[in-house]
Design a protein around this nucleic acid. Structure first.
Lengths: 362, 362
DNA sequence: CTGTTAGCGCTTTCAT
DNA sequence: ATGAAAGCGCTAACAG
């Protein structure tokens, strides 16, 4: 607990009877040669004195600070921890530390946080699913300050810009439609809310596109977008899915399968089905996106799309720290079939069919 | 995207025709007087030039770096995000940035990570539920380097040391026992595993103590501690709870209520009950600890103990950044009654009673 | 191979 | 009320 005066390179130099420069060379693995004898002597002194190089001074002098920034939209979003873990792991392997900043979906805060990180000397900044692309204010602010940025983003179609790790949501929805279509489903619903990540619109569009490629289409009346959600909160997001489902299932020609923008909403859909006395998957199939643990706990367990979040976090960091490649990386998620999807119900209710009381019962 | 040469205090000084010292004074809100005229002129120049002070240089010169470190045992543990969010929020309010480090329950890594943070100039380090107290190697390493440390820890009995935010697990278990006892339960079981946080033993001891205070006791045969868990993983932890329950419920005088060390294990217990054809709560009551969202999704929803994680994260940071008070803070969690607990089953099976086939059936 | 000498951007006496 | 100058701990040319 001795708060001894900080041991500097100078102390080591004096102890080893060499110059600071020599110690400095020793520090970063002798770029130019160095006699083994000296190296050892310096090493011994450093160890003896308990010397630890100051990252601050090193950073100030122009060299790296060995720190990067990671900005997450909402840390309580269950998708984030694996991403952060991946990012931190990779950064750590590369000898970097990570500054974490959570903006709680207040997108306008991103730029400030990014700049604060720049001031602290980060060498790069990664955005975990920011609402917009690399052209968002926060990203441009950082890169115009000379700090490289990278981001996790929906992939969209076309090439992926350098620095971005793109999630191919469309490919995911394609798998969902394949699965459901083979099960006989023809009327699809989509549940989302106004506070989801940038992936939301891509998932909806992906569903519509996959349906279109089979000559079917996503009826706008079968798309529910809850807008009563305020700040992000897992349970609240589940509730938004529940509200969506309630409105989706109130129509006479209700969908036989509902795709939710993510697992949280999907859980809400399953819960709503229970409220309405509908059996899943006999009466209604439900599929989510993201593969959360909560979806496995649900009865029936949720069929969903697995997204390799941990790997994405790793890639994001690798991309910003060592921007070797000039192109981005495309990540394709994959379907995980569990119990919430099954054959479409036999008795399809043609459009315009009148609801009976049993349908109405909650 | 212009990577203009960094604007320094010198540029501002030149532009405003004052000295660096004056700009420096202006920077940190004029400690000594300063003519309003000058202040304004400097401000104008700074704004015009887009000046941003370098945290690195500021830190090097001896003043604060406005950065703290936060070390978490396992970021994918669902209890962590709220803590991190609270910590980050409070730090941010105080103008601090936070370095996050996840050690994935590899406790021996903590010291290295802490030291790495010290090298990066953090002003303090907070440990979110480290396995040991403030006397753990990591904490002593940091504090002997002159960096104050704080931690989230089980409170235990007795006074709480400065810098620690203590969770009173015993108080939580007392509430659990009150609730269950009033429901008629007399045979209690406890499910845990060998990889839980430092709170684990305290929860078990708390249960035993609460029972003892009513003249009852926790039969060691009714304590199951799964040890097949490797790295932390939510689903795996649920499985460990399932295994615990399977062994706990195989006895002829099985407990009528099982308390799990946390919600994840508790979910596993409920799932196991389902596997065995036992109804919850009619045949078995289950209670968890931590109040996770997954527990609300479970059917029946889990009765549990809510821990104010977000607040604890905030307190932890406040304690390490402004170590005003000399004593720690005690946090008392509170019972949340949901559907997994109910009246004890009428037909109690006295010790030694022989199981019938129905009991055996899975 | 190793030592000298300048700074990096900022704070901080000490003068003025 | 403001300025000059000396570093914080380290790196980066150059010299020797």
């Amino acid at each position: 607990v001795t708060i001894r005066h900080r041991i500097t390179i100078k102390d080591v130099a004096r102890d080893a009877s060499v110059s600071q420069a020599t110690v400095s060379n020793w520090l970063r693995g002798q770029p130019n040669g160095m006699s083994a004898e000296t190296r050892e002597r310096v090493g011994a002194s450093a160890r003896k004195l308990g010397y630890r190089p100051s990252g601050l001074a090193r950073g100030l002098r122009g060299h790296g600070t060995l720190a990067i920034g990671l900005i997450v939209p909402s840390i309580t979003n269950p998708s984030m921890p694996p991403i952060i873990r991946g990012a931190e792991d990779r950064a750590s392997e590369l000898g970097y530390g990570v500054f974490l900043s959570n903006i709680d979906r207040q997108w306008d805060k991103a730029a400030d946080h990014a700049l604060a990180m720049v001031d602290k000397g980060v060498e790069a900044i990664g955005f975990a699913f920011s609402i917009a692309g690399l052209d968002a204010p926060a990203a441009t602010a950082a890169s115009s300050a000379g700090v490289p940025v990278g981001a996790l983003l929906p992939a969209g179609s076309g090439p992926i810009p350098a620095g971005v790790v793109g999630l191919d949501n469309e490919a995911g929805m394609r798998q969902v439609v394949d699965h459901l279509w083979n099960l006989g489903h023809r009327r699809f619903g989509f549940a989302t809310n106004t506070r989801v990540t940038a992936n939301g619109p891509h998932r909806r569009a992906g569903l519509a596109a996959a349906l279109a490629s089979r000559g079917a289409s996503l009826d706008v009346r079968n798309v529910a977008e809850d807008l009563t959600l305020s700040r992000f909160d897992e349970w609240e997001e589940i509730q938004s899915g529940r509200r969506d489902a309630l409105s989706l299932l109130a129509t006479s020609d209700r969908p036989t399968a509902i795709c939710a923008v993510n697992d949280l909403l999907a859980i809400g859909v399953v819960l709503a089905a229970g409220d309405l006395g509908l059996r899943v998957p006999e009466d209604l199939s439900v599929v989510g996106f993201d593969e959360l643990t909560a979806g496995r706990v649900l009865r029936p367990p949720l069929t969903t799309i697995n997204v390799p979040l941990y790997e994405m976090g790793r890639h994001l960091v690798a991309k910003v720290i060592e921007p070797t490649e000039k192109a981005g990386l495309r990540i394709t998620p994959s379907l995980v079939v569990r119990g919430s999807t099954g054959a479409a119900p036999k008795s399809t209710r043609p459009r315009g069919h009148r609801m009976n009381d049993a349908d109405r019962r909650g």
